[in-house]
Every structure is written in C-alpha cells, then in structure tokens.
Design a protein around this nucleic acid. Structure first.
Lengths: 193, 193
DNA sequence: ACTTCATCTTGACATTGTAAAGATATCATG
DNA sequence: CATGATATCTTTACAATGTCAAGATGAAGT
C-alpha cells in the first residue's frame, strides 16, 4: 500500500500521528482538518470515514497523547520499590512530560472535556485517577488519617499540575534546568511556615 | 445614541462585554466574530474599526478579564494588615475568582500568549507579577534566604494556580464547598512528609 | 468472476475571517 | 451656521474551513 494508491491503508493512525506532529510545530490555531488531510495525502473529506468530525478527530489525538502520558506516569511505579518513592517519581514524570512536550499541555487541558473525579477510588480522567490511586495506596500503607485524604490528594495534584502549567508558561524549551529544579521542588517543601 | 442609529456609540466596550457574557454561557468554540457583531446589533465587519482582527478582539477580552482578575488580587492586600496575611488572602482570591467564573480559566490560559517572568522583580504576566512582588516583599521582611526565593515562589504559585485548575476541571459550579476548602488548603500544609 | 463493503474522491453549501469600497454621522474649524 | 475632515458603520466580495451527499475505487470473501 504505497502513497500513490487510492486507498491510504492506515489513514486513522496517520491522521493522529501527523496531527500530533503539527500541534507540536505550529500549535492548534493553524491546524485544520483539511490541512491535516492534505498532509496525509488524501482528499479533504477522507477523514470522515474514520472520524465523525473535527471534534472527534481532535479527541482521538487527545486520547493518543493521554495514552503516552499515562505510560510515562506508570513507569514511575515500576522503577520504584516503595510507594512514597513512586509518588515522587510520578510527580517528576508528570511535570517533565510537559517540559519535553510543552505544546501538549494547553492542547490536553483546554478542551473542556476533562472531568476530575474527586470522590471515587477510580474513574474519571485517567492520569488523575492513576495519581489518586497511588496516593490511596500510600495512605493505606501508612495509616494516614482518612479525613485528610481528599485534602492531601488535592494539594499534591494541584501542586504537580500547577508546576506543569508554570513550566509551559515560562518557556519550557528555553529553560534547561527544569530537569534539576522539578525533583528538587517535589522532594523538598519550599512552602512558607 | 439609541440602538437604531447608524453609529453604535461604544461598540468596542459592547463587543468586549458581550464577548465575556457569551464565553461564560456557551464557551469559546461557539463564539465567532460575526455572531458577536450580530449580538451587538452591527454588521459583521463593524468590529474592524475597533480591532485589527479576531485575535486582537479576543486579546482585548482577555485583557479585560485579566484587569478584573488583577483587581480581585489587589483587594487581598488592602484588607490585610500583615504581608503574610495578604499572601494568604491573595491565594484565596486567586482560586475563588475561578470558582465564581469557571469558564474564564481555560480562556485566559490557553491562548499561548502569556509569559511568566521568573527572574525579574516585575514585568511579564501581571497577575503573576503581583503575586511575585508580594512574596518578594515578604521575603525582605522576614529575611528569608535569598537562594530559596525562586523555589518558594514557584512552589506557591504552582500550588495556587494548580488549585484553580483543579477547581475548574472538577465542576466548579457543582461544588459549593470550595469557598471553605480553598482557605483550608492554603492555610494548612497537607503535603506528605 | 461476482458481490459486498470499507475507503476515498468529487462537488456542493453554509459559516467564518478578512479586505476593499462606499455610506453615514460626528466634530472641529471657519 | 456651513463645510470639510474623520471616525464609524455597511455592503460586497473572496478564500479557507467544516460538513454532507453522491459516486468512484479497490480489497476481501463467496
């Protein structure tokens, strides 16, 4: 199935991966369904055989990026013997994922289709669910007082997610020290009082 | 200058305020320059006498929201006698502004035109600059070790900004307890270790 | 070889952003 | 008050975009 054939072969994957490329290069505003189709060498209506529309296409790209993000998060658990160590590394991996892919941040979190389930043990937006589950595990191990669970989860996640936000808004690509700063900030408590 | 006259009278302000309304109602994706113009009772090209284009118009709306945001932040200083108290209240006001205006968050921070100046004493994105300046003041008062300034600012801002993000992603309008939770989270340290 | 079906193309249309040219009212100046 | 300059708005036009419908193509199975 070469590039001159009538049928593309794997247009769905091609659209998603080309979409990720073009988001990383020119951002979102200059990316249209038709340009993406052209970049894949198909006509402007071809994507409609694989996606119900533009929203569906971009949601698929979002899911694909989220999948990679989830993989990076889960790597933190594998490489850690203790749970508390895993939480630290998951925080690092969380932020550093966006240090290495700055454009992904606003794309992932500005589409207003993400729901953070605060109450349950699982469900909701997967990266948050993973983080939450790991903290629950740590809470159980250390017999952390249950009335503080939600507050502690909120604090930790907000801090980590906020750091990712800061990184992308202060020139992630221009600051090379992030890889040293982030673990420092997560390991030590630099809050006043 | 009534609504039937050829000249609107204050189209620029009308576009900005109507734009804020429509963002709060239907979000961004359903808002076009032409719809906004129609909602203001003018032709679709009328806005071009006040804005250079769509980007300029939306930047003006963004600036207007930011102005209101800055006012809310500065109120924290007036109502506080001590600097540390002001910092606490500014954090509260920061997050609660988005509890009360959930749609503003993604609109403000997803336009990729915000730059956080980490190094200087002022300049850059104003809400961040205000927060940073207040912390510098507190550092000076308490003779806080200078090598920790940047790390402490990063931690505090990331936490506060992350909380605002969490709030908007977990249904700001459905959870009425935020106004009690946020001050609690900011006043007490619920981080592990 | 024939049929079936997924995939792709072509053509069309409404919406949108933008620019140019002209219409209208406001305002300063005499 | 008259007049011309200027700001503001309308009309018209065009290219880009998202979407749909109808038809073309070829792959896979019978």
């Amino acid at each position: 199935m070469n590039e001159t054939s009538y049928h593309h072969g794997d247009l769905r994957t091609a659209m998603i991966e080309k979409g990720m490329e073009m988001i990383n290069e020119g951002g979102l505003k200059n990316l249209s369904l038709r340009k993406l189709a052209a970049a894949c060498g198909v006509s402007h209506a071809a994507p409609y055989s694989h996606f119900s529309g533009k929203d569906d296409l971009f949601a698929a790209i979002q899911n694909h990026i989220t999948d990679k993000f989830v993989i990076v998060l889960n790597e933190a658990i594998k490489n850690s013997s203790e749970t508390s160590d895993g939480l630290f590394h998951m925080g690092c991996n969380y932020v550093l994922f966006f240090v290495r892919n700055p454009k992904y941040f606003s794309f992932l979190f500005s589409r207003a289709n993400i729901y953070l389930d605060l109450t349950g043990e699982s469900g909701g937006y997967e990266p948050f669910a993973i983080y939450k589950k790991l903290m629950h595990q740590l809470f159980a191990e250390t017999q952390y007082p249950e009335e503080l669970w939600l507050k502690t989860i909120l604090s930790h996640w907000a801090f980590v997610h906020g750091l990712a936000s800061v990184v992308t808004m202060s020139g992630a690509d221009t600051i090379k020290e992030w890889e040293d700063i982030i673990p420092d900030l997560l390991a030590n408590n630099y809050f006043l009082q």
